[in-house]
Amino acid sequence: MRLDLLAALNEERARRRAAIVVTEIEGGRQRLVREAEIGKDPLGAVLASQLRAGKSGLVEAKGARCFLELHMPPPRLVITGAVHVSQALAPMAKLLGYDVTIVDPRTAFATPERFPDVPLLAEWPDTALPKLALDHWTAFVALTHDPKIDEPALAMALTSRCFYVGALGSKKTHARRVESLKKRGIAEEAIARIHAPIGLAIGAQSPPEIALAILAEITLRLRRGPEARL
C-alpha cells in the first residue's frame, strides 16, 4: 500500500467517513474510494452493494479478482443526561466499542468523578449536539427525564441520520413528549422513530439492567436494521 493512500484512508477514518480500499490481487494495484466517490468509480455498483452489506471481501469484477476492504466509522453513542443509568451505560457501551459522549448542562451531574474516562459536555444540547455532527453511525439516547434538556436534543436527533433514537420514560411521559415534539414542528413519522419506552423488554430494574436493555436494542438496530423484529 502506498503511504499516501494509507494516509488518506486514515484521514477518512479520523473524520468518521466510510471508505473502501480496492486491491487487485494479481498485480497489486490499489485505490481508495471515498463514500462520496463511489458513484464515479468503475466498480460503483459493486462497491455500493458491498457497503450496504457492511462486509469486506473478494469479488470478481471486470475480469480481475479484487479485495474490497471496507472501513466504516466505529459506532458512537451520544447520551443526554449524566444520570445514574448513564453511569452504567457509558462503560458498558465503551466495552462494546462505542465512542461515548455525555451531554448535560447541569454541572452538578456532569462531573469527571461520576464519569471517569467519558467525554462530558456540560452544555445545553443546542450548543453541544451541532458540534457532534450526529451521523448514520450514531445512536442517541435521552435519559435526563427533564423535557427542557431531552426535547430539544430529541428534535435534533430526529432530524439527523442517527441509526437509533431512544428516550427514557413511561408511556404516559412519552405521550406528552410526542405532543411537545409535534408542537416543535417535528414530523410524525420522524417522532415514530423514537424507541420508547427505551430498551428491549427484558424486565430490567437496576440501572445496569436498564443499560443492558438499551444496548441490546441499539445492537439490534445496528446489526439488523430499522425494521428487524425479535
Binding site: 500500500m1 502506498r2 494509507l6 486491491t23 490481487i25
Partner: peptide, 8 residues
Amino acid sequence: RVYVEKVE
C-alpha cells in the same frame, strides 16, 4: 487467505 503487502 492473507494478503501481505509492503507499505511504501
